[in-house]
Design a protein around this nucleic acid. Sequence first.
DNA 1: GGGAGGATTCGCT
DNA 2: GCGAATCCTCCCG
Length: 203
Amino acid sequence: MNTADLAHPAETVAPRLLGAVLTHETAEGTVRVVITETEAYSGSADPASHAYRGRTERNAAMFGPAGRLYVYRSHGLHWCANVVTGPDGVATAVLIRAGRVVEGEDLARERRGTGVEGPRLARGPGNLCRALGITGEHNGADLLGGSRVTLSAGEPVPAAQIRVGPRVGVSRAHDWQHRFSLAGDPTVSAYRLSPRAKPSNGA
DNA sequence: GGGAGGATTCGCT
DNA sequence: GCGAATCCTCCCG
């Protein structure tokens, strides 16, 4: 995986990240997941994006070059990881919503705790970060080299296996078809409409 | 300085 | 399926 693969609009990159491999190496060991579910966030043009109202301290990583990690805290407890896409200075990113653990399952289980197994280990953006050991300290890390978190190409995914649908849990632009997943994969999280969702224009 | 609002998760009904 | 937990960020006054 290199800059040229990622220097495109988020909605272009998001389906291409299905099947790609996200790896975190620590002193405790290595956990590796195959990405099974993504969502595109189109920066200043996207009412649901953190970057919709411009650059702030929190979302600064989204404005960086493609291939950086943007990590934010959700609801006080959970971490969510995004792959920054597009040219430097443009705040587009792809949220990694779910993955299948293919290496370091014991360590992932230890991090998740109490009886979480198999497909549930990295299902949901917060759970995926827990399984991988990704936290706010990884915000801005370079996934293409020089950090312990890396993104690499995986087995090619047939186009017929890719499903498209509305994003999960967003209250604005909830009808945008910006969510991509592998058909029938047990690690993909369930769809949920935000209780605050309002009508919006599709894209 | 105050308050509203989450790109969520889990447990209980 | 629903709602509480939980706390940080941003916007507004």
